[in-house]
Simulated assay, not measured.
Amino acid sequence: MIRMNRRALLGASLGALAMPALPRTTMAAGSMSAAVYPGGWDEALRGVLAPALKRAHDVDVAFEPLFAVDQIAKARAARGVAPFDVFVLDPGPRVQGIDLNLFESFDPSRLANRAKLPEGYADRHGAGVAAQVVGIAYNPKKLPKPAGWRDLFKPEYASRLGLTGFGTTFGTVSLIEMAKVWGGSETDVEPLFTELRKILPQVAAVAQPAAIPGLFQQGQIDVMYTNTYTVSLLKSRGVVIEFALPETGGVAFGTTMHIAKGAKNIEQSYQYIDTMIATDVQSALSQAPYFFVPVNTEVTPGAEVPMRSIADLSKFVTHDWSKINPLRPRWIDRFNREMAK
Rank of each mutant, 00 (worst) to 15 (best):
P23S: 00
P23K: 01
T25I: 01
T26A: 09
M27F: 07
G30P: 05
A35Q: 05
V36N: 10
V36Q: 01
Y37F: 15
P38R: 11
G39V: 06
W41P: 06
D42N: 15
E43C: 05
L49N: 11
A50D: 01
R55H: 10
A56C: 00
F63W: 12
F63T: 05
F63N: 04
L66V: 10
L66C: 06
A68E: 13
Q71S: 01
I72L: 11
K74C: 02
G80I: 06
G80L: 09
V81E: 15
A82S: 12
A82I: 04
F87V: 08
L89A: 03
P93W: 01
G97P: 08
D99E: 15
L102W: 06
F103I: 01
E104I: 07
E104H: 02
E104S: 06
S105I: 09
S105C: 01
P108H: 05
N113R: 14
A115W: 02
A115C: 03
L117Y: 08
R124Q: 14
R124H: 13
G126T: 07
G126A: 09
G128I: 12
A130H: 07
A131T: 08
V134I: 15
Y138H: 10
K141T: 13
K142Y: 04
L143I: 09
K145N: 08
W149G: 07
D151H: 10
D151K: 11
Y157W: 11
A158E: 12
S159D: 07
R160Q: 15
L161D: 09
G162D: 12
